[in-house]
């Protein structure tokens, strides 16, 4: 197996692509080749998050749903409470993980998070012919669209639309997704039952998320995961928890935090170096 920067990969010709993904058989003529990354995985992020939330609840975590967060109350260089539609909630530490909406909460505190919403779309269709369906994820490099098998469904996702917080669902975008999957895996799914969706990727300009401390001692950031929030979720959660706990993180994390956006002169002035940040 070949490796680039430690990532194993295989370069495939059209026949090998079809061997890896037999559902592509009828589209073989359109394929010039492929690149397979055997170390990658797939899965339903929603199912995962719901299950993990259930397990967290069983482990004692309290979930308060249906409550909107209005602002953070700072006093003496610390956050003392979060103001919500259900009143004021106090705590020792706060973790900001509001995805694309994180900058709004941080801005009044003087923390300028360079996170901007980049809209993407997906359709989810039930599999009707498993032989024609993808086995794992196939990325259509031409349209920048990913086609993924999730149990008895096919998820087709992609596109980058820079349109602020607009959440409208235009049929034109759905047509692009339908076109891509039907072109490669024609007849695999029932398009009449497609569920059309859009979401706002919390993107940073440098692609790396913002995980770790903030200039406020007891406010921690875990946001800006952009196109890869599902890929990076478990690791980001673990790194963040270690930092909150004042433990040494298992991977270097100093350059994953907000400090990288501060000008050199201000880097040393971050408050609350209670926990040793790994170099």
């Amino acid at each position: 197996m070949l490796k680039a920067d430690g990532v194993p990969f295989e370069v495939l010709d059209a026949d090998q692509c079809v061997a890896a993904e037999p559902g592509l058989a009828s589209a073989k003529a359109k394929i010039a080749g492929g690149l397979r990354l055997p170390g990658d995985e797939t899965g339903d992020c929603f199912k995962f998050t719901q299950s993990l939330a259930d397990m967290a609840r069983a482990a004692g975590v309290t979930f308060r749903h249906g409550i909107s967060i209005d602002r953070l109350e700072a006093e003496g260089g610390r956050i003392v409470a979060v103001h919500t539609s259900a009143g004021r909630v106090v705590a020792d530490s706060f973790v900001l993980a509001l995805g694309s909406y994180s900058p709004m909460l941080a801005a009044p505190l003087g923390i300028k998070l360079p996170v901007y919403p980049v809209k993407g779309y997906s359709i989810t269709v039930p599999v009707v012919d498993a032989d024609r369906a993808p086995v794992s994820t196939v990325m259509d490099e031409t349209h920048k669209i990913a086609i993924t098998r999730l149990g008895d469904r096919i998820r087709v996702g992609g596109m980058a639309e820079i349109a602020g917080f607009d959440m409208s669902l235009s049929p034109k975008r759905q047509a692009t997704l339908t076109h891509s999957v039907e072109d490669l895996f024609g007849g695999a799914g029932d398009q009449s039952k497609a569920q059309f969706w859009c979401g706002l990727r919390p993107m940073t300009p440098d692609g790396t998320p913002i995980v770790g401390r903030s200039p406020i001692q007891n406010l921690f950031l875990n946001t800006g995961h952009g196109t890869l929030g599902w890929t990076m979720a478990a690791g980001s959660g673990r790194v963040l928890a270690d930092i909150v706990s004042g433990q040494r993180t298992e991977i270097a994390a100093a350059d994953l935090g907000y400090a990288r956006y501060l000008r050199d002169g201000r880097k040393g002035q971050r408050q609350g170096s209670g926990a040793a940040l790994p170099a």
Binding site: F63, I67, I69, S85, F94, A97, G229, G237
Partner: peptide, 29 residues
């Protein structure tokens, strides 16, 4: 510890914080 947001990032954060022994509340609209 209060975690703001119950997306995949907020929930993984809450999980590992709880495992570390903290008392965790997650808030989401």
């Amino acid at each position: 510890v209060v975690v703001l947001g119950a997306g995949v990032i907020g929930v993984t954060s809450a999980w590992y914080l709880a495992k570390a022994g903290h008392e965790v509340t997650v808030i989401d609209r």
